[in-house]
Design a protein around this nucleic acid. Sequence first.
DNA 1: TGCATTATTGTATACTCTACATTAACTGTA
DNA 2: TACAGTTAATGTAGAGTATACAATAATGCA
Lengths: 230, 230
Amino acid sequence: MQKLDDELVSPNVFVDVVIFQLIDNELSVLLVKRARDPYEGKWALPGGHNPVGETASQAISRSLFEKAGIKTERLELIEQLYTFDNTDRDPRGPAVTLAYLGLSRNLVPKASKSTWNPQFFPVNDIPQLAFDHNLIIEHAKDRLASKILYSNITFALLPRLFTLSRLQEAYEAILGRKLDKRNFRKKYLSLDLIKPTNEYHMNGAHRPAKLYRFNKHGIEYLSRSFDEAL
Amino acid sequence: MQKLDDELVSPNVFVDVVIFQLIDNELSVLLVKRARDPYEGKWALPGGHNPVGETASQAISRSLFEKAGIKTERLELIEQLYTFDNTDRDPRGPAVTLAYLGLSRNLVPKASKSTWNPQFFPVNDIPQLAFDHNLIIEHAKDRLASKILYSNITFALLPRLFTLSRLQEAYEAILGRKLDKRNFRKKYLSLDLIKPTNEYHMNGAHRPAKLYRFNKHGIEYLSRSFDEAL
DNA sequence: TGCATTATTGTATACTCTACATTAACTGTA
DNA sequence: TACAGTTAATGTAGAGTATACAATAATGCA
């Protein structure tokens, strides 16, 4: 494919996705082992070049499927994170990288034709990555931690039915601190984001827990932000 | 300038800036009248192509100076707003547009060699613009309205010395609603973002108003967000 | 001196946040 | 079948913050 007008020559455009998932109540991020230069052999975020003819969304879908066998329809939420300018991502020239944040529940990555070896890593235990990907993940963590305080965004990380304890553990994993059980429940229930079902979750030798579901499975913002202390 | 590798051909990259300024206590935005196709003759945000060899910041600086005679050093704050994918901005092909938000105090636009006729328009009275620029301005307004509630971002819009009434009017202009004077002052002063000076502002036949200044002239975020009702 | 105008200030009430401990329901085992 | 172990569920008092609301202060001008 060829540019129609030689006057306009832009930096290359790349996309990268940070996909978070809760695995054993730990916030985890999807990484792939690069099978090509640059940074061959290093772990990195899934992503790649955004060629003419593809929108950024399309470029993400394609990269994600090629490198991790994941269809973007399986993500519960995807949104723009930040655009990184002037990265030295590619030795072939200046680049602009559009970073996205995706959240999912139950994905099991499995590269189709892949030598890319996709895997989830706990965000608190990530190796040194290719490019500036460690930095991008930090941005993504901050964004998520801030959004759970004023939205129902956890709907995208929890199973459709969940206990209040599980919800609280998700908050604790993302915020990185313990919360008070009674206050958390009182407050969260007052927000009208979730409602109880008639089902219970039994998980061992103890009282069963009522299961809840989110009212909406799309993002919803609160008018007042939501604190919660230890 | 030529790409080094024909394999990689990306969408074109453009930049646009939304520059807000308070003019007579009205939130206003800088527009230029396009002197070139596409959309020749239409009002638009200042911006343009981001060629290889320039970072986005550099492309913005250049465009802003060429089209409105403004040096970016004169902006009190500039930050990334959003990246628009798949715009039909340019008939020559697919594009990615990096939109930025800038805030300034006292800029008087004056295009150097310009047929671009830069001018500030009150945000509530903007003509139909080129591209998707009306939409971009809406995003920018929302961003600003949300940020004044949890940061000292108004430092970038007010003069170095200002009265509490002026500060309150800025809030009212940006939020689009009236605030209670006593509550606003009490709350704002409790945030420790500003401090009183020994100077007074006299503006007519009435009691003079004490002048305040911001503690920091860089952005600062509050831990708790800040409401204020009528 | 009085009038018009904007600046400045406080309080009572409702609401929200925070800290904190006991009882309920279940399973497995003695 | 009772007891031990485990997690689930729940309320209250005190502190802090939000809201509603009106009288006095300082100036310029007629």
